[in-house]
Design a binder for these strands. Structure first.
Length: 159
DNA sequence: GCCAACGTTGGC
DNA sequence: GCCAACGTTGGC
């Protein structure tokens, strides 16, 4: 089963927000990068594992475990002129941006970016490569397995 | 706030 | 199709 790391700014949508959402599920809106879009549109399958990563915040790192919860479909925010993700060049009959729903499974004590960098077995992770800016990256099964073994689950009311 | 890295745009 | 300028990401 394929695995992914998906970055979200917690100020926009944190793991807590995802856990608190109906069915602990959120549409992954706002991706405006073709490579990241292609991963969602062409490769993700329901049930794929997701590392829910917090970026652009005080302590960047993996904050939860989630899963792909839908097939891909057009991101409605691209057609909403009041949305920061509005794309005037995209037509409803030929949408440019697609997303998937992501369901939070559980929250973890943040496994920080610094910890990831300190873990020798994780050095080949794409997200750690210099200059990487992709908000969605594939995760190799050994990396997924190691991280799941090291991360500490936090019990929450939901999910 | 800084800035490296890199994707996108647009002139040619 | 090239490539300079520009904008964005995201850690620090």
């Amino acid at each position: 089963m394929p695995f992914w790391l998906m970055k979200s700014e917690p100020a926009e949508c944190s793991i807590d927000d995802a856990v608190a959402a109906p069915h602990a599920t959120v549409p992954w809106v706002g991706v405006r990068n073709f490579q990241a879009r292609n991963f969602m549109r062409d490769q993700m399958k329901i049930g794929d594992g997701v590392l829910f990563y917090h970026s652009s915040c005080a302590v960047p790192g993996i904050a939860g475990v989630a899963e792909v919860a839908s097939a891909s479909y057009p991101d409605s925010t691209q057609f909403d002129p009041s949305s920061p993700y509005y794309d005037a060049a995209s037509r409803p009959e030929k949408p440019r941006w697609y997303l998937v729903d992501v369901r939070a499974r559980y929250k973890v004590e943040v496994f920080t970016l610094a910890q990831m960098r300190e873990t020798p077995e994780l050095q080949e992770m794409r997200v750690l490569k210099r200059g990487n800016r992709l908000s969605i990256t594939p995760v190799e099964p050994p990396h997924w397995k190691l991280l799941l073994g090291r991360m500490k689950r936090i019990k929450t009311a939901k999910a």
